[in-house]
Each structure stands twice: as structure tokens, then as C-alpha cells.
Design a protein around this nucleic acid. Structure first.
Lengths: 234, 234
DNA sequence: CGAACCCTTGATGGCGATCAAACGCCGTGG
DNA sequence: CCACGGCGTTTGATCGCCATCAAGGGTTCG
């Protein structure tokens, strides 16, 4: 099935990006877009390419990664339902990141030209785009200071605390994706992620497979020194 | 003098952020803002504070830095004429970064509430804000991959090549700010910045004080492995 | 002229990368 | 149903980049 089915619309329409815009305009975007299913480990696009689509992950899991100096690093693990690669679409510049599916994924592809056109016509969509970029900007500011000022086990500790909150249960949750990908996201090797989990065992964290349990939140916070300014909501 | 003088207007009006908007609306912003001179080494605001103003550096030099785990790191060196801390203003969230003047600086302070209000009224301003945030987002993506994938001397090499282009003469230019600040921006200690310059001497870079000369651009590029995707224009 | 302060240079130490190997999980095929 | 094989993860040993500690220039400003 190529076009957006009635069943997918509500969850996509509920996204902050599309929520407040004019219904007719939203319909225009949806009818010009198409929904596609991709198998695991498929490259969706590569850095350097023209940004022909805005992507919305409806179901599955996607990794955004960057390549430099011959090596690569995970920049973001995209969980549904979320749009990604918005900045490239808005600026009409080549991608800085590449993307691959981590598991079989359903993805909405919105033609970038269409997106840019409707943004110009619909103030609510433009405002939402602006907000999304601003929040993303702040997320990257955090990620960069994290990388520059904290060491690996602290980064992991903070990530776990944030994931707990984000996923609904601060005490226990499942890691998304393989640990090797998480390691790359946190700027370390799989070996050192393993050791970092070992360190956190002494600071209130239990792990078994991809199941994480935070046994002593205060203890973990003391170790990880979380940011005094709490994370922005979506 | 508190308000925007006629002499300052052209260069501020020429900023991409304010360039395309309605003249009357721009006037409204200017008349509600004020220009102020700050001495060197003065803290303009601190992370965690409410974002009451959008800042526009008209003249001087400003450092944006973040604090975490008791240490601090430079996030950006702001050169005139540029606005900064836009994302905090747009989201109406607390600052994630602190700011201090590095030298005596003339700064335009635009009340954040006014800015947000006029953004809602003027589509061109909103579009420019969106663009600025998108470009800033991409700049941070680059900075983060740089930090994750390159080692210190390579980061310096790339920084020097980009600064050369940005400042108008790719062959020779002056570093902005003290080297200790540059070191922090590049995620290293002053000692290691010194050593990194030492390494680059063998790869086509000459330094004397804050004067940088790029003697062999190809050689430097081979060493620094610059990003295949060229930097976005402002 | 001297005293900060910044930058540089040298010596040492620690965090994390790399190399290497064993373990455990899971899917496949006998 | 079990044996096998592959891959991700873990654990251990070593190496290298960068931080830290320490001391010696150089420059600027009082």
C-alpha cells in the first residue's frame, strides 16, 4: 500500500509537527506522501545526498549516523512516531547524516519540496517546524556538552535516567536497539559500554540483556551528575 | 545611549534573521530593544535562567559556554554581527548555556516576549528564524561528529581551514579570542592545543601568536580529513 | 621594571580504544 | 529435540591519546 491509510493518520496527525496546522493542508501533505515498509538493516539515505524527503517513522526503529575520517558514529536512535532529518529538508541542503533501519520499519515519505511549499503557506506548520528545530537544537547542545564534559559511564548513567522517564517507567525499561548501537550513540566502543554497565552496577543500576532496572535513582544521579536544567518536553 | 541608533540599524537590518521582514515590524522590534555596552569578562547570563532577551552582538566578542559536572566548556565563539541564544527564546525555556564577553562589546537586547510576539505576526521573520535554527542545528551535528570521530589535532586543522574561508582569506588570518578559549571550544586543554599546533607545523600550518598562515592547504586537508559535505553558508 | 597571566614545553597518569578470546543467545538444520 | 554455527556481548590485556601536574618562556600592563 502506497498512500497513507486512514488507520495511520491519527498517530501522524497527532505529532507536534502536524498537529496544529490546517486540516486541508495536512491532507494535501498526506496525499502527496507515501508510506513504505523497509526491511531491517536497509540504508534509507546517505550523507551527501540531496534531501528529497522528510521522513516520519511510523513503526520500527531507525538509526541516524554520521561518517567522518573513515569511521562512523550513531547520532540518534529514532523511535516511532517521530519525524527526522527536518533540518536538511528546511534548508534544502545535502544530508549530513545517513540513515538505516534497525528493524523492519514503516516510514512515511513526504516529498521535501512539498513540505517546504506547505510550510510557506501554513503559519501553524511553520511555527511547529520552528519549534521542532529549536528543541532539536537544544538537544544537540546537551549532547555536545555531554560528550565534552562527562566520561563514558556518566554518559550512560544519564542516558538511562532519561530513557526511563521518556519511556514511561523510570524504574525499569528495555533498551532500544543493539548495545553496539547504543555504545556508538554514547561515543564509546561496545567493550567499554559493557564495562560502563559494570561500573553502574555499583551505583544502583541492574542490567540483564536489554532489560534495565534502576534500583537506586538517587545513587545513580549522584554518580552521573545530571544536568541541572531538565530536558525539554518532546 | 539606550536605543538603537540610526547608525547601527543597517548592519543589524542586514542580518538574515531580520533582513526580509516587514519594515514596520522590524521598527517595532528595534524600538522595543536597547543597545548596551558591556565591559570584557562580564557574564551576560547564566544557564538555567529564564531567557528574557534575544541577544545580537553588534561589536566585540562573546563566548557561549556550558557547565556540567563542575567543569565548563566553550560551545561557541560569537563574532559580530550575529544573534545568539535564539533557540532558548523561541522555546521560552531556560538557557542551556551561559555567556560572557571576551572583550568590550556592544550588544542589542531584544525582549524575548516581543521577539516571540512579532515572530507570530510576521511570516518572513518566522521563516528566517526557522532557517537560522535549521542551519544552527546542522552546525551542531557537525560539531558533535567532529568531537566523536576526530582527534584533537584534526579538529584544529578543520577549524583553521573553515575559519580561513569564513574570515575571507583562506591563507592567513587572526584567531579570535585567547587560545585557551579556542582550546575549550575544540574540546581540549590549552596544553594540548599548543601541541596540536606543533603537529600541524608538519602539515602546512604556520602560527605566530594569534596569526595563522596556511602554507599548504592540500597537505592540511589530507591530514585533517575535512567533511565531504561543505559547510552551510550563514 | 616587575608582576601577572598566558602560552609553551616536558613528565606522568588515566580513560578509553584496540586486540584477543571466551561466553551466551538464537536460529538453522540434521 | 538436539547439535552446530554465527553473531553480539562480555571479560581480559595492552596501547595510545589526551588530561593533569610541573616548570620555564614571553608578553602586556601597571
Amino acid at each position: 500500500m502506497n498512500f497513507v491509510r486512514i488507520g495511520e493518520k491519527p498517530e501522524i496527525s497527532r505529532l507536534p509537527l502536524f498537529r496544529d496546522m490546517d486540516d486541508g493542508k495536512r491532507e494535501r501533505i498526506f496525499s502527496g506522501s507515501f508510506l513504505q515498509v523497509f526491511p531491517p538493516q536497509l540504508t534509507l539515505f546517505a550523507a551527501g545526498q540531496q534531501s528529497d524527503f522528510l521522513y516520519v517513522l511510523v513503526d520500527g526503529l531507525v538509526e541516524l549516523y554520521a561518517v567522518s575520517a573513515g569511521r562512523e558514529t550513531t547520532m540518534r536512535i529514532v523511535e516511532p512516531v517521530t519525524s527526522f532529518i527536518l533540518a536538511a529538508v528546511v534548508t534544502d541542503m545535502p544530508f549530513l547524516m545517513s540513515a538505516r533501519t534497525l528493524v523492519s520499519s514503516r516510514i512515511l515519505l513526504v516529498p521535501a519540496a512539498l513540505m517546504r511549499e506547505v510550510i510557506k503557506q501554513d503559519a501553524a506548520l511553520m511555527q511547529a517546524t520552528m519549534q521542532e528545530l529549536a528543541v532539536g537544537y537544544r538537544g544537540l547542545v546537551r549532547a555536545l556538552t555531554d560528550m565534552k564534559l562527562r566520561q563514558s559511564a556518566e554518559r550512560l548513567g544519564n542516558y538511562l535516567m532519561e530513557q526511563g522517564v521518556r519511556l514511561g517507567d523510570p524504574e525499569a525499561f528495555e533498551l532500544k536497539g543493539e548495545k553496539r548501537v547504543l555504545a556508538s550513540l554514547l561515543g564509546m566502543t561496545p567493550e567499554n559500554l559493557s564495562r560502563a554497565f559494570g561500573v553502574l552496577r555499583d551505583h544502583g543500576v541492574g542490567v540483564s540483556g536489554s532489560r534495565v532496572t534502576i534500583l537506586d535513582r538517587d545513587r545513580l544521579a549522584r554518580f552521573s551528575r545530571p544536568d541541572p536544567v531538565p530536558p525539554d518536553p518532546i
